[in-house]
Design a protein around this nucleic acid. Structure first.
Lengths: 145, 145
DNA sequence: CCTTGTTAGTTACAAAATCAACTATTACCC
DNA sequence: GGGTAATAGTTGATTTTGTAACTAACAAGG
């Protein structure tokens, strides 16, 4: 089917980025969902804690741009499964410090190794230079650059 | 806050792509939502029809990788607002040909010009060469390349 | 034709996202 | 201090999505 119009939808960055994001998330999603029954927001919270150590929900929100209600509910589910503990901050008792339990750490380490392998699988399609440029451009587009 | 771990979450492609996709969709979303009360799936269907002319839901699904239930619901809403018409295909009466009405065309043209401008705004952060490379890599990651 | 299988699209019900209102605590400032 | 505003996080009502089951039309083989 040829274009009736000259607009190139398949090159429109918001569209293209969404397609690429969805496609690239799929294989990893199957792992955390299948192995641990986790949702997208849950692995994100888990990874933030695994990577950065203990954080508050607010700090996770700033880094991930997830909405606070998503974080709140993801934290609840992770706490139910004993993947993390919540302890009120002494200085500011509104917030709580979240930290992975040993069980959470172990899930994190398993998923991290899957993530590392999958990431290099994705990157293998490009040259080293292209790959570095891609990450740089994405960080810029994400407002993280 | 420094990494406790050596895994670089902010460079993990599925994460980075999602962040970039969400961020880059925001400004455009405000327009189609604010001006026409449309949802993401609706502008996608509208754009497919605007760009490619009349299509069936199935053809849209193949091109956009949207699930058929999303398309079905987006089509319903667009039909209610008289942005498109649905006519049963004579040869295969299971499927219907979707086509924009004049009102739909006019909404499409308006949003298309916003999209064009926004896309070049996003691309302006990069050199021509980088931009072309970016789109190529995204198409590859999206399985469209 | 009649059974079996496939395909286009819709719908029902459960799960998840969104948005606004809410609680509890801290900060500001007169 | 005492009042007002801001902040961290939760909850509830509504909307949207996801999964699976469903209808209707076609297809192919006997």
């Amino acid at each position: 089917m040829q274009n009736k119009d000259d607009f190139d939808l398949q090159s429109f960055l918001p569209f293209l980025l969404n397609q690429a994001a969805e496609e690239s998330s799929l294989a990893f999603q199957r792992v955390y969902k299948g192995r641990y029954g986790m949702l997208r927001n849950e692995w994100r919270v888990l990874f933030h804690l695994g990577v950065y150590g203990q954080m508050t929900a607010k700090e996770i929100a700033e880094r991930s741009k997830m909405h606070k209600t998503k974080i709140s509910r993801a934290v609840q589910r992770l706490a139910e499964r004993r993947y993390l503990t919540r302890t009120r901050d002494g200085r500011d008792r509104r917030s709580e410090r979240l930290a992975l339990t040993p069980a959470g750490e172990s899930v994190y380490r398993d998923l991290r190794s899957v993530a590392e392998e999958y990431d290099s699988h994705l990157a293998r399609q490009f040259t080293r230079g292209e790959e570095a440029l891609l990450r740089m451009m994405l960080r810029r587009l994400a407002g993280m650059g």
